[in-house]
Nucleic acid binder design. Structure first.
Length: 469
RNA sequence: GGCCCUAUCGUCUAGCUUGGUCUAGGACGCAGCCCUCUCAAGGCUGAAACACGGGUUCAAAUCCCGUUGGGGCCGCCA
């Protein structure tokens, strides 16, 4: 049975790199009807924060990456870590090291200047007289020689020289395990069959392998995912901009789009297909199809993908999703006027990448626009007098337009013949018309907008524009 | 500095296992055209890549070696 896990540390909000790792673990487990677990690695008391844990859980839930059973809290497992440590100590496979951080730093620096591999071969490893149990930290006594090799599902065979690892640390105290030890013990406890994690963990793997051998734990399969990169091709981090899942959620990206996009960062299915639902991803995902090299997180493609998902969304779902991004007055207006909203939606949808843009792009449907006089003038050459004349003509045409014939096509049929005849072209009429309604350089077609706004409001806005000129 | 990973358009990638069908395919973005009062959407067209050098071979993006570039890790963090 396939068993995977996502094991984030709650030292920051869920970021896209972590989310992608979680996604691949999730897909792999679901693909083979296995289990996907979530374990919070909160052994670092200093840096762990329950608020980050909250953010991680929320983010995964929002993305639809549901894990099996209750999530695990690593800090609650320390009795198991302790048992493992005591066993290693008793068998002479681990020892207490009393070196200070300063001493270790000096040693490392000297090794670097001598071009030697940085490692700590500890002189307390044989239980030197001046090292007392309980003093300093616990290290693994690394007597391994030769190559440590493991098969990576993505990269093939990966080997390390055992001697280069030195006597690495495994715990600060008996009840304060360090990462490598905790991971090994907890993965064994969960029965994890496949460790799927970021490539940045590849150099931890030989240490974990050594610990597993010492503890008599069977090795899982490994798959080290390529890293998600920033624009400068270094590991994606805060300085690259928005990296947390929550930030994307707040901007109005859809979870389906983000999942689809993240899946394509390092994975590619058959043929030219780009769009996959979560279920389709589960069906098609194969760890062997994962790319080896890092992928830049380029949000322009995410924007496109989000637009595709937005356009494909059922109307009610879209409404539900976008409402939180509107002012409360707008929300009320939408709820009271379903046909109005339906028309607005059709006009703004093709112009929208993320839900949060609604505040900017749809304001004129809900509020009277403000604009500078010059904006009403079509190109530089139109005079205010000319524009005012056209607006007055529009006003008359609209006032004589029957209120029940105020659809976009009626208005077009009524106004276009007038606009066509004008010397500077139809723009001299249509541009001031559109600006009077929207106050914007860029917007949907004025006839469509006028039909949505209704006769009274349209005439009022034209009058206002006339008074401005 | 040591170790490890990696290398196809600007970006995400297909192709590499089983050399020839690759004048290297798709998507995003970009440019142009159509549509058009504007901005989108939509339609059409286009520019754009096998890091380099050696081999092996009749033939290499595909196999081998080397170089260079990029990245990661080197914690009493995870």
């Amino acid at each position: 049975m396939i068993r995977t896990r996502f094991a984030p540390s709650p030292t920051g909000p869920l970021h896209v790199g972590g989310a992608r790792t979680a996604l691949f673990n999730f897909l792999f487990a679901r693909r083979y009807n296995g289990k996907f677990f979530l374990r919070i690695e909160d052994t670092d008391q200093e840096r762990s924060d329950p608020r980050f844990q909250e953010d991680i859980l929320n983010g995964l839930t929002w993305l639809g990456l549901n894990w099996d059973g209750q999530h695990l809290q690593q800090s609650l497992q320390t009795h198991r870590h302790r048992t493992a440590l005591e066993r290693l100590l008793a068998e002479g496979k681990a020892f207490w090291c009393a070196h200070s951080r300063e001493e270790l730093a000096v040693e490392r620096e000297a090794q670097t200047t001598r071009h030697e591999p940085p490692r700590h071969i500890c002189n307390f490893r044989d239980g030197a007289a001046d090292s007392a149990p309980g003093e300093g930290i616990i290290r693994f006594r690394n007597d391994a020689t030769g190559l440590i090799t493991f098969a990576d599902l993505i990269r093939g065979e990966v080997s390390f020289q055992a001697e280069l690892l030195g006597d690495f640390s495994v715990a600060k105290r008996l009840d304060a395990p360090l990462y490598n030890l905790a991971v090994v013990v907890d993965d064994a406890e969960l029965g994890v069959s496949h460790v799927i994690r970021g490539e940045d963990h590849i150099s931890n793997t030989p240490k974990q392998l050594l610990l597993m051998d010492a503890l008599g734990i069977a090795r899982p399969q490994y798959a080290h995912l390529p890293l998600i990169l920033g624009n400068d091709r270094s590991k994606l981090s805060k300085r690259h901009g928005a990296v947390s899942v929550n930030e994307y959620r707040q901007q109005g990206y859809l979870p389906e789009a983000l999942v689809n996009f993240m899946a394509l960062l390092g994975w590619h299915g058959e043929g030219d297909r780009e769009c996959y639902t979560k279920e389709e991803l589960i069906e098609h995902f194969d760890i062997a199809d994962v790319q080896k090299s890092g992928a830049v997180f380029d949000t322009t493609k995410l924007d496109w993908m989000n637009r595709e998902y937005l356009k494909a969304m059922p109307e009610d779902d879209f409404t539900k999703a976008v409402i939180p991004y509107m002012k409360s007055e707008w929300q009320k207006h939408v709820q009271k006027n379903p046909s109005f909203w339906s028309a607005v939606r059709a006009l703004i949808l093709p112009r929208m990448s993320v839900l949060g843009e609604i505040a900017e792009s749809a304001n004129f449907f809900f509020e009277e626009p403000y604009y500078a006089e010059e904006l009403l003038l079509w190109k530089e050459e139109q005079t205010p007098e000319n524009a005012r004349g056209h607006l007055k003509a529009l006003q008359e045409l609209l006032e004589t337009q029957p209120p029940d014939k105020f659809f976009a096509e009626d208005l077009r049929a009524r106004i276009m013949p007038y606009a066509e005849q004008q010397e500077g072209g139809r723009g001299t009429v249509l541009w001031p018309f559109r600006v009077a309604l929207t106050g914007k350089r860029a917007s949907p077609d004025p006839f469509d907008i006028a039909a949505v706004l209704g006769r009274t409001e349209v005439i009022a806005r034209i009058n206002k524009a006339i008074s401005v000129l």
